[in-house]
C-alpha cells in the first residue's frame, strides 16, 4: 500500500524587523542631534623673503608696496598702497585695477607690528579674489 504523503502547510517567509528599525531610528536621531556642520578651511599662500634676499630683489623689478597699519577698535583696516593711505574698499578697488593689468606682478605686504593678523588675512583674501598670486609678506621695523 502506497504511503500517503502529507502535504505540509507553507507559511510565507517572515522576518521580524521591528527591533532593527527601532535601532535604525535611534541611530538616525542620535546623528541628527550630534552632527555639527564642519568648517571649511582655506590656505592663503605668500612668500616670506629672508632679509638678505629682500634687499636684493626690491630694486630689480617694479612692485606694489602695501603697508598694513595698526587698526583702532571699531575702525576698518587702513592700508598704505604705494605711499597713499587708503581705506579697505579703496584698497580693494586698487587691487582690482592691478589685477586687470597683470596678475603676476609682485606685491610686497609690509605688516606693522601692532597690526592684527586679521588685517593681513583680509588683504591676502582680497588678493586671492583678484588672482594676485605673487605676494610677499614682510614685517615692518617701526610702529
Amino acid at each position: 500500500m502506497a504511503r500517503k504523503r502529507r502535504k505540509a502547510d507553507n507559511h510565507p517567509g517572515e522576518l521580524n524587523l521591528t527591533a532593527m528599525i527601532d535601532v535604525a531610528f535611534q541611530l538616525l536621531s542620535f546623528f541628527l542631534l550630534a552632527i555639527k556642520p564642519v568648517d571649511v578651511f582655506a590656505n592663503l599662500d605668500a612668500f616670506r623673503p629672508s632679509p638678505e634676499k629682500t634687499n636684493v630683489s626690491i630694486p630689480s623689478s617694479p612692485m606694489i608696496k602695501i603697508m598694513v597699519l595698526p587698526q583702532n577698535p571699531g575702525e576698518s583696516g587702513t592700508y598704505v598702497v604705494n605711499d597713499v593711505a587708503l581705506t579697505t574698499a579703496q584698497t580693494e578697488a586698487k587691487l582690482k585695477r592691478y589685477a586687470e593689468t597683470d596678475t603676476t606682478q609682485t606685491i610686497l605686504i609690509m605688516c606693522a607690528k601692532r597690526s592684527t593678523h586679521k588685517q593681513l588675512v583680509d588683504l591676502l583674501d582680497k588678493c586671492a579674489k583678484y588672482k594676485l598670486t605673487n605676494l610677499s609678506v614682510v614685517s615692518s621695523a617701526g610702529i
Binding site: V40, F41, L44, F47
Partner: peptide
C-alpha cells in the same frame, strides 16, 4: 615667520576660514 626664515622656508600658508560650519 622668523623661525621659518631660520629654516630657509620662504613659502608660508596662512590658514583661514573659508566657510563657517555653524
Amino acid at each position: 615667520l622668523d623661525a621659518c626664515s631660520q629654516a630657509k622656508i620662504v613659502k608660508i600658508r596662512f590658514a583661514a576660514l573659508k566657510e563657517k560650519g555653524s
